[in-house]
Design a protein around this nucleic acid. Structure first.
Lengths: 235, 235
DNA sequence: TTGGTCCCTTGACCATAGTCATGTCACGCG
DNA sequence: CGCGTGACATGACTATGGTCAAGGGACCAA
């Protein structure tokens, strides 16, 4: 079994990387792994939480089903990212559901194990808090996007987040299908499609699941301009 | 000075209430208080954080200014609520700005003091995490509302959150001005006004800053129905 | 009482995005 | 090769909510 690979990924995950070596080992020893097929459910909102999850391969989405039936995608996690930190400690109910969007592999650290580690080394608690803060921050950023930006602007920012360059041109690969991207950005697939066409006027061209960005600065400027100005530019 | 009152409120705050008596005392001793006038800024996004804030009187709003100039209200905190837990420990930059929406009084616990307390008693760390989780949860709930509910439905849910009853009828007082409520719900004051008029058809009547709810169950049902159905009901 | 200000409401108009229906294109299979 | 399937794009129509402008009403001070 590819146990070494899993360990390596887990150790370089955002949550565990700052832990001392010996605590990493202990936690890895107490953890379990599981593989999921695309579409499988990891847990449902309302279930009580007893473990922290770290994605070691594939993609996992967190979503919420509103009382009226609408689905809101809260976040999508890739290899090396963790979720469920804050929920697990008090055995609270998950506020969201989790589903594999590709075949994936997930490591679970029982919350009691992490609690034990926190008792030994209070620095661990700070790391967990820092990790939770990252999630808080991402949610705040999403709220800002939804409240203060138009659809095409949100798409622009999403694309900017994918290319790890500051300027020039580049080609990025869309990480998951457009249906899910649309959900993540709070819109319908049709609107995503239309947003892509609007972005042609600022030098973005979509081909299959690749997006070619002519000029990163130009796209950033577009995502940061006032909605009403943006409208004139993208006319 | 009304030092006793402050202490009492701080001790019953969501963050501190579960702490052992002696740690509460230590933290209170190391904390500072400050009063703010309406409209004053507590801190701005980008500043680095070194303290946890607890509101002991009045209301404080957390908001974010997007690059395009749009304001997104992230949350509004009342007496007894705390914010900034997760940010402070690593001296990270605040992801949001804070402003007094009424005259208010805020207690600050230096993060080093809380860190010290966490070293003494790991249970403290769990409490801080639990408090952070509450914020995470509230953000997730807001995301869901924005993505999956119409304006009037969000207003309905906001009103339901204000009345601490399960059924029957009641009158609630709007806690802050309508401009801010609109921001908190991701809409313009005009839209809030229109939402209120729509809610008349499900038995909600607004008078100055009081909202009379005829039947809580009816309002809840409205907030939970499908947007397209909701439209027919509120016609 | 008068006038002024502030806050909220209302109406008209329009852009953004959702819905529904249809069209296109790549891919896999017999 | 034709056919079906699934993912995506596009077009027409509609509704939700933003913008701008005007109106009402509470409150305050002269």
């Amino acid at each position: 079994m590819p146990n070494e690979r899993r360990r390596k990924i887990a150790q370089t995950s955002l949550l565990l990387q700052s832990f001392p070596q010996d605590i990493q080992e202990t936690l890895l020893g107490l953890s379990s792994w599981r593989e999921y097929d695309r579409g499988e459910t990891l847990f449902l909102q309302g279930e009580s939480a007893h473990a922290i999850h770290i994605v070691t391969d594939g993609w996992v989405k967190l979503y919420r089903i509103a009382p009226n039936g609408g689905e809101a995608v809260v976040n999508v996690f890739a290899k090396g990212e963790s979720f469920g930190e804050a929920v697990a400690f008090r055995g609270h109910a998950y506020p969201v559901s989790a589903e594999a969007v590709t075949a994936c592999e997930v490591m679970r650290i029982p919350s009691v194990a992490l609690l034990e580690a926190m008792r030994k080394d209070p620095e661990i608690a700070v790391s967990v808090l820092a990790s939770t803060f990252t999630h808080l921050h991402s949610l705040v950023a999403q709220l800002e996007q939804l409240k203060a930006q138009t659809g095409p602007q949100r798409v622009a920012e999403f694309l900017l987040g994918l290319c790890h360059q500051e300027e020039g041109s580049c080609v990025v690969t869309l990480p998951y299908d457009k249906f899910l991207i649309a959900g993540r950005l709070g819109m319908k697939p049709e609107s995503l499609s239309r947003s892509f066409s609007k972005l042609k006027t600022v030098g973005v061209h979509i081909n299959r699941n690749n997006a070619a960005i002519e000029n990163i600065d130009r796209l950033r400027e577009y995502s940061e301009t006032d909605p009403v100005e943006a409208w004139h530019k993208a006319q």
